[in-house]
Design a protein around this nucleic acid. Structure first.
Lengths: 258, 258
DNA sequence: TTATCAATGTGTTTTACTGACACAATGATA
DNA sequence: TATCATTGTGTCAGTAAAACACATTGATAA
């Protein structure tokens, strides 16, 4: 078994044997917990800042498979909702100087024209995971991996703030066409929880009563007999998505704007 | 001035000095004419089939700049509506054998590990052009370049049929958020023409009277005093987009579904 | 010259949906 | 046991959508 430094050396100096040059993926992994939309970030070594989990594309992988692999490595989850949404290809989006500095800090020699010092274009993906199920995990190229409140991500490296913004906008537009509620919420949830999710994604408040009427009108929710106990107030009903009806409704798009 | 064969030789054997390996763009260039949605295609040399206009990405270009350059080369048009919509990265989407066969036909020597024999992922773009203004032009790597009715493109090379389908679906989803009518129609147009455009994109017929009421309700059209003469029937009014109002309305999205 | 006819311009009616709002029920806490 | 924030349910007016009818126009054909 290789140690961490050797693993890094191999990747830096021989990665181009297995990975495609110039092409990377970055994933905005969303979760929802305590009425907050969360994003999974990783801490860069020798840098105060955080970054989106990302990775490179093996020569025998599609972009989707690469994104799926990165997601699995970071959350332990399989078969997760994952969609590409934009290609980021600004000329100066990579930062070769930072990379070389990091390698110096790690004591790793980098030869001229190393594949990682060249320009990378990155395909942005967004993933929707059940917060409870995900187990944030770091690896050899990141110190820490943890959830952040969306409003609280601070300044990230490179164009990663822009990528998150773009992912959020995509999700907003696709709210009526993708099973976003289903993938972000646990199996059972309350109507207020679903509403908070919608409000967070849309960035505006919605009328509680109209929201419920419209949601139930779609016929995609099954109300359970249980209620959520433990809150300081009236116990709300629990709901489940009726997956069959949900899928059917999404094909045409849920009708009406927010 | 290089002749055509020499130009091709240079591109094939030294293109990797100027272009990025593994990355290409393909553009679905839409036009609208005679109540038909059109797509611009190019004819492949030594092959019966047609293809989407595409190209490679210069080392100093963004994806958008590359797509813009290709569009300019094929239509003569500048400053055109152009949006990326999906990355196509299937492992076997390239066809190295076909490429080598083509090179043999042209009598061009291809060395082992030539950059063009490697895997390419392609970023799909769609463009909306004014049919009247575009001047379809071929170049050294394509025999012919011309418009096809969307329903009539036949079997294209590689995954290009799939790319068109994906572009059309994207356009359908973005109909209320992008100035699609403005970019596809000439400056002056009639309400029935606008309706045919919507119907073609959506793939369904719309009620004439409801369409007009809704369209005018947006306040994005100015009716002119002129009418379109020459038809066999009652002469319809001509309209223009009120660009200022249109842009403003698109920011929030045109309300209501189709 | 005039009747024809397909296509356009302009309504109306009915129904469904949205937005704004009011009040009763619940259940932990004080 | 009273309090109170939160949830469950209902109403009403205004708006938008779907379905539909009739008059107008202008080239074409009789």
């Amino acid at each position: 078994m290789m140690d961490q430094k050797q693993e890094m050396y191999e990747f830096v100096n021989r990665g181009d044997e297995h990975y495609m040059a110039h092409i990377s993926i970055d994933s905005v992994i969303f979760g929802f917990h305590a009425n907050q939309l969360k994003v999974l970030l990783v801490k860069i070594r020798h840098d105060d800042r955080w970054a989106l989990p990302g990775g490179f594309v093996r020569k025998e992988e599609t972009m989707e498979e690469a994104a799926d692999r990165v997601l699995r490595e970071r959350t332990g989850l399989n078969n997760i909702f994952l969609r590409q949404f934009h290609v980021f290809s600004d000329i100066h989006r990579s930062n070769t100087e930072k990379f070389l500095e990091l390698m110096r800090s790690e004591g790793i020699e980098v030869k001229k024209n190393n594949w990682l010092t060249q320009r990378f274009i990155s395909v942005g993906f967004y993933a929707l995971v059940n917060y409870e199920d995900a187990i944030p995990s770091s690896n050899w190229d990141s110190e820490v991996c943890e959830w952040f409140d969306l409003q609280n991500v601070g300044e990230l490296i490179l164009d990663h703030n822009k990528i998150i913004e773009s992912a959020l906008e995509t999700m907003r537009r696709q709210l009526n066409f993708q099973p976003i509620g289903y993938n972000l919420l646990p199996e059972k949830f309350t109507m207020p929880e679903l509403q908070r999710l919608y409000e967070t994604i849309l960035g505006k408040t919605l009328d509680r009563r109209n929201f419920q009427r419209k949601m139930l009108g779609y016929g995609i929710l099954d109300r359970l007999e249980e209620r959520r106990k433990g809150g300081a107030h009236k116990a709300p009903y629990l709901y489940k998505f009726n997956l069959e009806q949900y899928q059917k409704a999404l094909k045409e798009g849920l009708q009406g704007g927010w």
